[in-house]
Design a protein around this nucleic acid. Structure first.
Lengths: 232, 232
DNA sequence: CCTACCGATCGGTAGG
DNA sequence: CCTACCGATCGGTAGG
């Protein structure tokens, strides 16, 4: 219950059908988004351990205690950030999964991952290098989404193997290889120095062989060919 | 100048040829090795941030302050551990660099890196995920060795490209790809579940194509062949 | 190699 | 959303 300027008690609007407030208000959610965004920036710049809640609060011109009105703990803050990033990545992958040509799909996934990681190495340093700090429950939720992410790559590698574009490897190891190769980018990529598209192109060439220029109708696999050309 | 129990001034030992103590004693160095090994264990198990000097000292039945007799700071401890690991890795790579066959050499490097990373994922989590904590001077020394490490892979990729075993990619990007693929192992490899040798074999197949079984004389490149078989 | 202790940081809470 | 503050941790130092 609140008090208006005259000091009289005010009651909530009496409108019969008033939809119940079943959740946080819009303003609350929006403010929390601000906080999450700022926390992401702080963590990106100083790392998770070194980036304190005081830093986050100060950057928003708040007191640290006020953050607890929006978030239960520091690690929950991290969880929200991770979850949003993962959801974003998943939906992008999903948008690419319609590609039916195995080579095109795998190439698109590689380009996606390289572009994503190169676009924000700072954030991914936090993401990949501070995971154990999450509480078990959050850990589980993140892990589930990560697993879905991984499965996109397993499917793409499987498709490429079946099409004879890749040698007959274990698709799980293949997916780890592709993801490792692309993800590792966050450790060395420097925007000014390196070219994101060139990197992706070279990675794809490494996996699928040199891109046939101007030709679309490439018959089958290079791996099948390779074995044909063996001479005793 | 020191004073003996009688209060008289003492001079350094007069023995003419006595070899000067030009560095820490053997016992001192040995004890420091113990401390480094224990610190490595603690960091491996709890991480660098969470693994306190009290933890390290306690595990050695010492007081924390005593560690400072052997080490200047916590980050110097980390530096010593990293430097030893890197030196070890470099000498192993060096031992493999005699391989003249480009395919064999690249394969050996892949096997080396996968085996190394899979053998101690805990330590490499510390190594790769806590770097920024090192002081600038240490950072520079480590970086230099890492660069030498990187150059081994650049050379191997270059060799494979020149031999037509890999498509004509930028050797630096190629080396990052190979290292990323192999190194990423520390993030997902589990000794019981995964097979280190199978992983390496699949990675090699992914890079160089399926291993020709029982045949040694494979003519040239699969990439050259691929373009030959294109039909309009 | 030890005892004793400092100084600073930081996540989190009480209570409004 | 704020003031005030707690409790615990931790790297490091003094001085022996």
């Amino acid at each position: 219950m609140t008090t208006d300027s005259s000091g009289a008690k005010t009651t909530p609007p009496r409108k019969r059908g008033r939809p119940r407030q079943d959740g946080p208000s819009e303003a609350y959610v929006a403010r929390r988004q601000d906080i999450l965004a700022m926390a992401a920036t702080v963590f990106r710049e100083k790392g998770y351990d070194a980036g304190s809640l005081d830093d986050v609060a100060e950057a928003l011109d708040l007191r640290k205690a006020s953050l607890y009105y929006y978030v239960k703990s520091k690690s929950e803050l991290l969880y929200f950030i991770f979850d949003a990033a993962l959801s974003d990545g998943l939906s992008r992958l999903d948008a690419l999964s319609h590609l039916s040509d195995p080579a095109e799909r795998l190439s698109a996934y590689v380009e996606h991952q390289v572009a994503l990681l190169a676009s924000d190495t700072g954030m991914f340093k936090v993401f990949f290098d501070n995971r154990p700090l999450l509480s078990p429950e959050f850990e589980e939720l993140i892990r589930a989404k990560e697993h879905r992410y991984f499965e996109f790559y397993i499917a793409a590698v499987s498709g490429a193997v079946e099409a004879g574009l890749l040698p007959p490897i274990d698709p799980r190891y293949g997916a780890q290889a592709v993801l490792g190769m692309c993800t590792w980018t966050y450790k060395w990529f420097t925007p000014g120095t390196h070219d994101c598209q060139a990197v992706a192109a070279d990675f794809i060439a490494l996996l699928l062989g040199p891109k046939p220029r101007g030709l679309t109708m490439v018959p089958k696999a290079r791996h099948e060919k390779a074995s044909q050309k063996i001479r005793a």
